[in-house]
Amino acid sequence: MTIASKLKEALLCMKAGRVTLPYPFEPHDPEEGFRGLPKVDVNKCIGCGGCANVCPARLIRVIDKDQSTRVLVFLYERCTFCGRCAEVCPEGAIEMTRDFELSTDDVHDDMIGEYHIFMGPCERCGRCYRPPTALDKLMKPGMREDTIDRKCPMLCPGRTEEKE
């Protein structure tokens, strides 16, 4: 009885063949929809800080380095890969990549992202600004230092006069 069941088990195992993944020696890509390390495309980012606002791990820091540079610092070591930042980004600048091989012996140096975004400074108050929506962006081409128009932009929170 027991020998018969053992034989049956052995047969079953033989039929299944080898099931172990050869993984660390051969690549094994994640499934569709897998969320890996979020990366920012600095060409698309408008520096609105929406991602920093929703990140549950509060790992995105927005620092205005000088009058025309805004820096997004991602402390990736505590990222929960929830994808909220990519979902909320109005420009689709954040991509949840499929990178999952993140193991490291120095998490503080390797798991960090620093993105320097160019922002036009307001002529009047000197603060970084970008129009809030893509529609506003279409209407106001002068966002950058070289093309900025002489009027204080209507959206600037620091504007005091010049209502049209």
């Binding site: 600095v42 025309s68 991602f74 091989e101 193991s103 490291t104 620093e114 993105y115």
Partner: peptide, 13 residues
């Protein structure tokens, strides 16, 4: 090791 720090900069022009 696969991971490394990411640094990117967007210039004015």
């Amino acid at each position: 090791k696969e991971v490394h720090a990411l640094h990117a900069i967007q210039e004015a022009d």
